[in-house]
Design a protein around this nucleic acid. Structure first.
Lengths: 348, 348
DNA sequence: TTGAAAGCGCTAACAG
DNA sequence: CTGTTAGCGCTTTCAA
């Protein structure tokens, strides 16, 4: 192979035995300081790199990665994220990596807490985590750090310094981009933001920054534009329909519509009934229903952040760190913001 | 690990020895039909999967992949493709895969032929190939097939049935998408297509299908639109400048400009000198110079096909096939067509 | 603290 | 045609 230096070489050079060398390699103590240093020195000089195959073969184990996500209903954003688990490359699997999914109720902090406990009990070698609750997550990562379990964030992250990597979308910028897509770069008169009513503010609004980016773009490029908000209940299609109806009765001049979460598909029934030429409708995320709406021409464009890719890349990064000891090239990996239209969605 | 069944097990079950089992596993003959079948049967029943680590450890070798690309000058499309070699995951490398780059002059079939010869001499375990010359490529893949060397196409492909996989962009669709980006979905009066003059028609025009897609879109959505073509020489900046100048003097009403290859950056000097509000300029590929033009606002949008990703995915697919014996899930993988604007290019 | 030795599952050379 | 055997480089007891 590439690396000719073996543990035998360094055993010979140091006058010690394979066993001792292995002990310092894995820092599992029971080695005299003297031997330790001798070994380290030679390792340094020869640029020794352990042979992954041999190690895995002998060790037998491989590694276990826990993936912690909100539970996703069929067709939801989190289901999309979940599907990323199945998309890790065959070569990662071949490296002996196994993944285990843990889900929690995204509306219940105590559910998250419970799940965290389960994860800790399972004692995985690494954790991929989509955090929603700040408090509880802080505690969880502390526990992980104490046990020396590396973790990587997806979707959003905590300020904690100790995560291995983060894969997510730049939220503020995504709002900015979204505004540009919505206006087509022209100054416009008015837009409607449709938001989801949230009863309990257990968690911070995850789209806050995105909205801020959107507003800033509008302020800059369309300062005259009036921006309205309406709120809908995702579980009340009829109410949603009526809310749109009455808004547009009162504001017939408004054309363009935007939503900052993945639920733009909730507007489809009303949109389909009220086609307006030149109306632009922009939303986020490639949920099957959103894509269908895009194909129908009811939605103009979607901005995609590939939660599935975030998850699979996170798993790969973790695996490389654990099995190969290679840190990811960049700690914070902001994913590309994909612009989807009816003309490129087929190959997404 | 996962698979408990070892070659010892199947040796025992068949009453044969490891050696014989290994021989049928690797189809290297010298086995009686009877033994062969017995082994196959048991393998089938137990669902035996070889242990990659052990195999690689014992075999020692790993594998060598040749990547055959046109030589890319600094900042060119093919340099971008080349950079994909460095981007294969660490896990693939860990699998013992090594890559070797072979380049050829994209304007000289004989150079390609020469390179092919070198590749065959190097006797790699697999080949990634960006083909430009139909004839020569046909011959080359025949040679490869004869030697049993698997190959995968990137960028474009031959009709040959025997390639392992293909990673590329749907050309026709990309033209269609491009037209939509250029017009913003509105009917427009006239557009200008800038093309590169090609002296020798050694190779088919690689952007022909893309142009066809573009034209079809225009016919459908802007039937009145007049589409003009001008030709430029990529090595003659001054001539390019003048060509644009004189075209637009004669046709001041034309606004939008498009190019179907990666050279939109050639127009930057003229464009920068002649800003027109509402002009849309669309090109292809994320070359550094193109991206700079996008950031400056001189180019409206780019359509990216990630030649680097094509190459790295191709290498990975080949590696998985060779080392792990896993065929790629889909033979023809059309890559997503990325829409780049100044607002999402920073995270590309 | 350290060394010796027995494998992990597979390959390949060699002897029959 | 087939069985035996000696490793590949590392991990992990078990003695010393």
């Amino acid at each position: 192979m590439e690396n000719k230096v073996t543990i035998n070489d360094i055993a010979r050079l140091t006058g010690l035995s394979k066993g001792t060398v292995d002990r310092v390699l894995h820092k599992r103590g029971e080695v005299s300081k003297k031997s330790y240093e001798k070994v380290m020195k030679v390792i340094e000089e020869l640029g020794y790199k352990p042979n992954v195959f041999a190690s895995l073969l002998a060790g037998g184990k491989g590694c276990q990665i826990a993936v912690v996500l909100p539970s996703g209903e069929k067709g939801s954003y989190w289901e999309l994220a979940e599907s990323g688990i199945a998309k890790v490359g065959a070569d990662v699997e071949a490296l002996g990596v196994r993944t285990q999914l843990f889900t929690y109720d995204q509306y219940k902090p105590e559910s998250f807490h419970q799940t965290c406990t389960e994860v800790l009990e399972a004692a995985p070698d690494g954790v991929v985590l989509a955090p929603l609750f700040k408090e509880e997550t802080s505690q969880f990562v502390l526990d992980l750090e104490e046990k020396g379990i590396p973790y990587v964030f997806v979707d959003s992250r905590l300020e904690s310094e100790h995560y291995l990597a983060y894969f997510g979308m730049p939220m503020y910028q995504s709002g900015y981009l979204c505004a540009d897509q919505l206006t087509g770069g022209f100054a416009i008169g008015s837009v409607l933001i449709v938001r989801v009513r949230r009863d309990k503010d257990q968690q911070a609004d995850p789209t806050k920054n995105r909205r801020a980016g959107f507003i800033d773009y509008m302020l800059e490029h369309s300062p005259e534009c009036s921006v309205s908000n309406i709120f809908i209940d995702p579980n009340d299609p009829e109410g949603t329909y009526n809310a749109l109806d009455s808004y547009f009765k009162a504001h017939p001049e408004t054309r363009h519509i935007v939503m900052f979460n993945s639920r733009i598909h909730l507007l489809v029934p009303w949109l389909a009934d009220h086609p307006v030429k030149g109306r632009r409708v922009v939303g986020f995320d490639n949920l099957p229903e959103n894509i269908a709406a895009l194909r129908r021409g009811v939605v103009t464009s979607l901005i995609g952040q590939r939660p599935d890719v975030q998850v699979s890349r996170a798993i790969e990064a973790l695996a490389e760190a654990i099995v190969l000891g290679q840190l990811p090239p960049q700690k914070d990996a902001f994913m590309h913001m994909d612009i989807l239209t009816r003309y490129n969605v087929d190959y997404y």
